[in-house]
């Protein structure tokens, strides 16, 4: 359920919904757990997405304060697509009625690959499908009230790297500015922590440093980790400058720059209060930066 939304009515807790993981079948192959990345995808692929969901009807009714005999529920499963934090286009919305006697939905979706682009968003929402005859004041009463929801995102294979990277000739890009002598630079605007991570950050590699680019292309472990540390370091050091760093992390929407920074913080310094980290970044910047190597070591890829 969206943690940042304060619902004006009772909702169904996660514990009342058994949402099994998504499975994917590509081009008639084996059904496999859906990973973050759909390898080998292109517009000609056939994709099948399946999952099972079960709602504990009685418990959900109790959580909503509505008698089971007055409760009508429906699961909506949507496929959306397009790059960014939100889908650019919702393609389909499948409906599964949920009742006391049929509280399990076997979801099977076959989106048309030619309509897909960059990302697949799979949103599952439990809604009230009819106004209850009787309900206490805090219970939902309007049809289509959102009672529980969950979203999964999968990146599609193609030419899109997980981390946006471009090559450019810096002497053309920056002309006589000192930046033209740099082998790389990260284009980003600190401050807009709610912006989609992949739209907010872009790495430019200078084609005038061909050996450096060749090392990266060859998968040179040290060069890749060095670059990761530099990128993560820039972002986390800026985050530590923010007075409300903890609020930024807590309120960051999924997939945003703030959420990504928050996940790096948890990875490098689990259970450490943010003010301790801010102090470390201020008084021991070298050690703070050195800690970031731990994240780069544990990240398969940015």
């Amino acid at each position: 359920m969206t943690a940042s939304v304060a619902f004006p009515f009772l909702t169904v807790p996660d514990s009342n919904v058994i949402a099994e993981p998504w499975f994917i079948r590509v081009d008639g192959g084996e059904l496999a757990p859906a990973a973050e990345f759909v390898a080998g995808w292109d517009y000609a692929c056939k994709i099948e997405l399946t999952r099972n969901i079960e709602v504990s009807f009685e418990e959900a009714a109790e959580a909503l304060g509505i008698s089971p005999k007055n409760l009508e529920l429906e699961l909506l499963v949507e496929v959306g697509t397009g790059a960014g934090r939100y889908p650019r286009q919702m393609l389909t919305c499948a409906r599964y009625p949920i009742t006391a006697s049929a509280s399990r939905a076997e979801v099977k979706l076959i989106p048309d690959s030619s309509s897909l682009s960059s990302l697949i968003f799979l949103t599952t929402t439990l809604v009230l499908s009819a106004s209850p005859a009787e309900a206490p004041r805090l219970s939902p009463i309007q049809t289509n009230s959102k009672l529980w929801s969950e979203r999964s995102t999968m990146r599609l294979d193609g030419d899109e790297p997980r981390f946006p990277i471009e090559t450019a000739r810096f002497s053309s890009f920056f002309q006589d500015l000192p930046e033209s002598n740099s082998p790389w630079y990260m284009s980003w605007n600190p401050g807009d922590w709610n912006r989609d991570f992949h739209g907010a950050v872009r790495l430019y590699l200078n084609t005038e440093f061909p050996q450096f680019i060749e090392r990266l292309q060859a998968g040179d472990d040290f060069a890749l980790r060095y670059l990761s540390v530099e990128i993560i370091g820039q972002i986390l050091e800026k985050l530590m400058d923010e007075e409300d760093a903890q609020d930024i992390i807590d309120n960051a929407p999924a997939g945003s720059l703030g959420a990504q920074a928050g996940s790096w913080v948890s990875l490098a310094w689990p259970n450490t209060p943010i003010n301790t980290l801010q102090q470390k970044a201020e008084t021991q910047p070298g050690r703070f930066r050195a800690c970031i190597w731990a994240i780069a070591d544990r990240q398969e890829e940015l």
């Binding site: 009515f9 809604v127 289509n144 959102k146």
Partner: peptide, 13 residues
Amino acid sequence: NEIRHLASMSTED
């Protein structure tokens, strides 16, 4: 739209 699934309402509603 945050608390109600507007897109799946009937056209008339």
